[in-house]
């Protein structure tokens, strides 16, 4: 069992609330989503493992058991080409759950006309394998859901 942590502080709202069908229809896996606090802050690793993909606006941490968790910082934020995001780790780095990965500002993303909501996805997990999703207020590094 893997406990997946909230990568950012905010309100856990569930994947269905994400305005992007790739996430709301769980095309790449089940999970949750956080409507982040509108303040500059650090996005942290949701699990311990290796950063196998690191973009400014999204990253995947893969545990030693091969399970990957995707964190996407806002919707359509690939279009920002990294502007407003600062990397605090590098692709290939080993990280522990809760370790900072990217510094960003959800308020700036929203001012740019994009949703700052953050999907957190258990990649290629079966629907029934993700449960215990927390709803409501969370801090960065708090438990978000369980991947059995």
């Amino acid at each position: 069992m893997t406990t997946v942590l909230a990568p950012v502080a905010g309100t856990a709202v569930g994947l269905a609330a994400v305005p992007d069908p790739v996430f709301s229809q769980a095309m790449v896996g089940p999970g949750s989503a956080i409507d982040p606090e509108r303040a500059p802050g650090q996005a942290v690793a949701p699990i311990s493992g290796t950063i196998v993909k690191l973009h400014a606006h999204a990253y995947i941490v893969e545990g030693d058991d091969g399970r990957g968790v995707l964190v996407h910082l806002g919707i359509d934020t690939v279009q920002l080409k990294g502007e407003g995001f600062r990397l605090l780790a590098a692709e290939g780095d080993r990280v522990r759950a809760g370790q900072p990965v990217v510094f960003w500002n959800p308020a700036a993303v929203e001012e740019g006309g994009r949703s700052p909501i953050c999907p957190v996805v258990a990649l290629d997990a079966a629907d029934g394998d993700v449960n215990g999703q927390v709803r409501g207020g969370v801090g960065a590094g708090d438990d978000l859901f369980e991947w059995s």
Binding site: P21, V22, Q25, V28, L70
Partner: peptide, 20 residues
């Protein structure tokens, strides 16, 4: 692929984390 979304002449092909 996991899914396909077509809008105008832009096609989003959802392939999972191996997209790069």
């Amino acid at each position: 692929v996991h899914g396909v979304m077509l809008a105008g002449n832009v096609v989003q092909v959802v392939v999972g984390p191996d997209a790069d």
